[in-house]
Simulated scan of single mutants.
Amino acid sequence: MKDYYHILGLTSTCQQAEIKKAYRVLAVQYHPDKNNGDRASEERFKEISVAYSTLIDEALRNEYDYIRGYKTTYRNLRTEPGAPSPVSYLTRVQRIKTQVLNAGGRINKTALFTVLNGLLNEKTITYLILQRDILTNNLITDEVFTCCVFLDEAAKATLYSSLEKLANGDPKFAEKLALRNKRDSTAQNFTISKPAESTDERPATTTILIFILFIVLFVILLAL
């Protein structure tokens, strides 16, 4: 993914007003009509337009910053300083997912479920829905789905129910859930065949019997 801040000549900590100002200057400079249809200028203008349309939108900028790893630049104008925001919940779930993946599967499933289930309580879900930050909510859903890979079916069902409430009727969630259930079903049906134990044990049993018979014959010969 391209660095949209660099394209506009800005840093990730810039204000929305700076984004608008930078776009206006660059758009005039590289507009095709100002450059006699120059192909390079046209491509540059398109690049500038994409960068601007992403960064000027609050939710899209949050998502872009998240993907790029600019964790300290998340913003949400609907909340007061110090108050929770959709992005703050996203970063909490993201940290949980990172810890789970770094554990290499050696996790306390009960503890993981308890943390996620507590995070997705009714109050939080209601708050996230009211904030209407659909993109951030979708990212939260994706992160929780990843964590659910390590949980049993009962725990997954509970969390999936909470995520369905968070989706608030979003048809894309149903598609995600169907795909996730399909993956889970495939994983459950996949079994690794075990070698027959009887085949491995027969040679060992035969060897022991032969050894015992040899000892018995040896004792008989000594007695004669």
Rank of each mutant, 00 (worst) to 15 (best):
residue 53 S to C: 05
residue 72 T to A: 13
residue 224 L to V: 15
residue 223 A to D: 02
residue 117 N to R: 06
residue 54 T to N: 05
residue 148 C to S: 05
residue 162 S to H: 04
residue 42 E to L: 10
residue 105 G to K: 07
residue 58 E to F: 09
residue 184 D to I: 14
residue 165 K to L: 13
residue 207 T to L: 14
residue 112 L to E: 02
residue 83 A to S: 12
residue 202 R to W: 06
residue 57 D to A: 12
residue 159 L to I: 09
residue 126 T to N: 10
residue 45 F to C: 15
residue 14 C to P: 05
residue 197 E to I: 15
residue 178 A to P: 00
residue 154 A to Q: 06
residue 77 L to Y: 00
residue 131 Q to S: 06
residue 92 R to P: 01
residue 125 I to K: 02
residue 186 T to I: 13
residue 59 A to Y: 04
residue 80 E to L: 15
residue 178 A to W: 04
residue 153 E to Q: 11
residue 3 D to Y: 02
residue 56 I to N: 01
residue 110 T to H: 01
residue 49 S to C: 01
residue 114 T to C: 02
residue 30 Y to W: 14
residue 35 N to F: 03
residue 217 L to V: 09
residue 32 P to D: 04
residue 201 E to C: 06
residue 33 D to C: 07
residue 102 N to A: 15
residue 151 L to D: 01
residue 34 K to R: 10
residue 46 K to F: 12
residue 216 V to C: 10
residue 165 K to D: 13
residue 185 S to R: 11
residue 6 H to C: 02
residue 71 K to Y: 07
residue 75 R to G: 11
residue 195 P to T: 08
residue 98 T to H: 01
residue 181 N to T: 11
residue 5 Y to W: 11
residue 209 L to R: 09
residue 148 C to P: 05
residue 221 L to D: 05
residue 90 L to H: 00
residue 109 K to S: 14
residue 115 V to S: 10
residue 114 T to H: 09
residue 79 T to P: 01
residue 201 E to N: 07
residue 117 N to T: 04
residue 68 R to Q: 13
residue 173 F to T: 08
residue 32 P to C: 04
residue 50 V to H: 07
residue 94 Q to D: 13
residue 98 T to E: 15
residue 45 F to P: 03
residue 214 F to M: 13
residue 95 R to H: 08
residue 148 C to T: 07
residue 89 Y to H: 14
residue 12 S to K: 09
residue 144 V to P: 07
residue 20 K to Q: 10
residue 53 S to L: 14
residue 109 K to F: 00
residue 41 S to W: 03
residue 88 S to M: 04
residue 206 T to F: 00
residue 62 N to T: 11
residue 114 T to S: 14
residue 1 M to W: 00
